[in-house]
C-alpha cells in the first residue's frame, strides 16, 4: 500500500539488541536480546506496561542510548549517521518546545539543527498543516497542551525525516484532545511514506494509528506479541465502532494481560 505513494522512509533492523542498566541495587535488562525489523514506510506501535523498556528501545534506535550488545541499522546506516544527516526526528512526551522561542522559532530550530537553510514558507506551511495557523508568533506558554504537541509534531516533520520516533507524544494531553490528534496527525507522516515508531500506553491509540503493534514485556524487556493491523490508512472517524477495530483492540489487550503481573500482585 505504501509502494504506490513512494516510500522515502528507511527500514530499521535491530539485531540481538540489549541494554542493561546497572545500579547499586542490581542490574536490569531494559531491552534484552531483541531481534526486530520495522518495515520502511510503516507506522509501528510499541505497547507495554510502564518500565517494560519500550522507551529504551526507542532511544537505542534514536542513538540517544548506546546498546550493551547488538546493533541497530537504519537502512544501511548507524543511528549516529542518520542523525548526522538530519533524517531522524524524535517527539517526546512533554512537547519539549523551548520556552523563549516562538512557535515559528521552535519549528525553524529543527532546520537550523539539521544545518539546512532557513525556509520560512515551509515552516508556515507545516504550522498550517498541524492546524496552528494564527499562532505563529505565540510562545509555548501561551499554547494549550494539545497545541504544543501539534507543534512538536510539526517540528519533527519540517525536516522531512526518513524515520520518526514518537515517545508517548500524546501521553500528557487529555483524552478528547488525544483522540483528535490520533486521527489528524498520523496522516501527515504516513502520506510521505515516513517510517514511524510510536511508543504508547494506550491500546486504542496503538490500533488507531499503527500498521503493526508490538507488545513488550518487562524485565527482561522483550517483544512478546506481533500483531498486524490490517485496517486501511488513513484512519477515519467512526473506525472505533467497527468490529474489525474492536477485535484487534481486544487481541492487543489480551496480549498485554498475558504478561506476568508484577511479583507483589502475583500471590493474590
Amino acid at each position: 500500500m505504501a509502494a504506490d505513494i513512494g516510500i522515502r522512509g528507511q527500514a530499521v533492523r535491530c539485531e540481538d539488541l540489549s541494554r542493561t542498566f546497572t545500579s547499586p541495587a542490581g542490574s536490569i535488562a531494559a531491552v534484552d536480546a531483541t531481534d526486530v525489523t520495522f518495515a520502511a514506510g510503516q507506522t509501528t506501535a510499541l505497547v507495554g506496561p510502564s518500565g517494560c523498556g519500550k522507551s529504551t528501545l526507542l532511544r537505542l534506535i534514536a542513538g540517544l542510548e548506546a546498546p550493551t550488545t547488538g546493533t541497530v541499522r537504519i537502512g544501511d546506516e548507524t543511528p549516529a549517521q542518520t542523525c548526522q544527516r538530519g533524517a531522524l526526528a524524535v517527539a517526546f512526551q512533554d512537547a519539549s518546545l523551548l520556552p523563549w522561542r516562538t512557535l515559528r522559532g521552535n519549528i525553524a530550530l529543527a532546520l537550523t539543527l539539521a544545518r539546512r537553510p532557513a525556509d520560512p514558507d515551509r515552516v508556515d506551511r507545516l504550522i498550517a498543516k498541524v492546524g496552528l495557523q494564527g499562532f505563529e508568533d505565540r510562545r509555548p506558554a501561551e499554547l494549550s497542551g494539545g497545541m504544543r504537541q501539534r507543534a512538536a509534531i510539526a517540528r519533527c516533520l519540517v525536516g522531512d525525516p526518513e524515520l520518526l520516533l514518537l515517545d508517548e507524544p500524546f501521553g500528557a494531553v487529555d483524552e478528547l484532545t488525544r483522540r483528535r490528534l490520533n486521527y489528524e496527525l498520523p496522516k501527515l507522516w504516513q502520506a510521505n511514506g515516513t517510517t514511524a515508531l510510536l511508543v504508547t500506553h494506550s491500546v486504542t491509540e496503538a490500533v488507531l494509528v499503527a500498521d503493526r503493534v508490538l507488545v513488550m514485556s518487562p524485565r527482561p524487556g522483550r517483544i512478546v506479541a506481533d500483531i498486524d493491523i490490517d485496517l486501511p490508512q488513513p484512519r477515519t472517524r467512526g473506525l472505533e465502532s467497527e468490529t474489525a477495530f474492536r477485535t484487534l483492540t481486544a487481541t492487543v489487550a489480551e496480549a498485554l494481560m498475558d504478561i506476568a503481573p508484577p511479583r507483589q500482585f502475583a500471590a493474590q
Binding site: 534514536a62 540517544l64 542518520t82 531522524l88 512533554d94 519539549s96 539543527l113 539539521a114
Partner: peptide
C-alpha cells in the same frame, strides 16, 4: 534543563 531538550539536539546529530 529538561533532558528531552538536550536529546532533541542530540537526535539531530549535534
Amino acid at each position: 534543563v529538561p533532558q528531552s531538550w538536550l536529546d532533541l539536539i542530540r537526535s539531530h546529530g549535534r
